[in-house]
Nucleic acid binder design. Sequence first.
DNA 1: TTTT
DNA 2: TTTT
Lengths: 145, 145, 145, 145
Amino acid sequence: MSGVNKVILVGHLGKDPEVRHLEGGATVVNFTLATTETYTRDGRKVEQTEWHNVVMWRGLAEIAAKYLQKGKLVYVEGKLRTRSYDDRDGNKRYVTEIVADNFNMLGRKSDNENGTNQSTASQNPSKPEDQMIGMNDNTEDDLPF
Amino acid sequence: MSGVNKVILVGHLGKDPEVRHLEGGATVVNFTLATTETYTRDGRKVEQTEWHNVVMWRGLAEIAAKYLQKGKLVYVEGKLRTRSYDDRDGNKRYVTEIVADNFNMLGRKSDNENGTNQSTASQNPSKPEDQMIGMNDNTEDDLPF
Amino acid sequence: MSGVNKVILVGHLGKDPEVRHLEGGATVVNFTLATTETYTRDGRKVEQTEWHNVVMWRGLAEIAAKYLQKGKLVYVEGKLRTRSYDDRDGNKRYVTEIVADNFNMLGRKSDNENGTNQSTASQNPSKPEDQMIGMNDNTEDDLPF
Amino acid sequence: MSGVNKVILVGHLGKDPEVRHLEGGATVVNFTLATTETYTRDGRKVEQTEWHNVVMWRGLAEIAAKYLQKGKLVYVEGKLRTRSYDDRDGNKRYVTEIVADNFNMLGRKSDNENGTNQSTASQNPSKPEDQMIGMNDNTEDDLPF
DNA sequence: TTTT
DNA sequence: TTTT
């Protein structure tokens, strides 16, 4: 019951977000995010990149579709979810994704040339003390995965 | 513009939450939370406790008022906010608080004897993909501090 | 280059840690951790449990081996790492793990009946301002996975 | 005993780090960091900036002194510490600081014109599995605050 | 497979 | 002022 499942990433998008509009009307976005760690080993500088599968839903997905592109530096907050699917050979496979509930574009404005200074987004976009959100489409059950 | 301001605490409440109902109808809750770090110095075990001022608003405050008590172990997530006030001598003073947007009771059920198994709460209590919240009273501007 | 890859979990161990001592002398520990989220959907309370694969190395692994058991409530901090391996059919498979660099036992002492009050551990166990650690065995390259 | 006290910030330095070398040989660095939140209220876009006091010690302080300057975008991870001091009138005052144990320069390389691509630092700078650090000067006790 |  |  007691549970905390939180992921915090800062990295660059490996590709443009892939946008899907589901039957129920919900928008889903997927992209990969690279986080690179630099450390020194035996005097040599080593870079190690980790790739993450990020998923965003609904309102957050729409903002992501509009403002995120390949190469952008972004802060992502979310939770881990491992889901299974059947591969082409009928074998059960697993993927772990980060289901984001918040993101934030980093870097200079000039990097984010989409003409707005929109740079923060969340499932809960208004000020916390001031929220009035109602996005509920219950279509998740219908998802093909 | 780009900004992340996040605090994550796990600790015990130093006192029962202090509940206030504001004119506009909003509920605010304040309590102190102790996080204790144990480390070894010169072979001796040393405990160092840090006290945090936690604030919760509206729906979250109401859940906190109902379920949190002195001594309880709790996970709190929020953001830092430093606000100023005038002390009795008219001098400007500053306090830093954690404005929580989420909490989670930890520990065993028997510790949480309030008769329910409610143990998670957030400004956004439903499932993220399923949210339908509307708590907006805009009273914050009227607050006496 | 710029990278942050951080995971924060609070959950219960699904099994006792599995301890391995590698040829080079390093200790590795693996366990699963359940984080359970409770939310309300259509008026019904729903529990959703996510299982995480946690890995700990060296000094941290040794402390984990000593103090963690199935069922314990624990705070884990670490980073995501997805690694590939070949399954019995020679197909490339992927697993995502949390490589912990810190953990903290939660819950009451009586739950942690191992006779000590050791409850915090990290790759960096002393006080940060006071550290003097040297665990370096460089055996990781020799690991069989 | 059980305690987690973690702060994660992404923001811009409000001034160059202020570097002090203590008698015992330790380096300390202080700077302010601004995190800005943008939200919409009554249809107007509102920006709210929070200022944080960041402190770094020893090795981390030295790297910060070398690479951080006013205006830089940085990720900072640390813990909260509230300390008291006596003001000029002999009154006890409190400040809350973030004692960093990790930082990471964000933004494009060209923004970080110091000639290196050093962009990550921690109290524990090597790869976790590969660490061999020994910075211990025990001078903290001698600090004037 | 955990926990409440 | 909490907790172990």
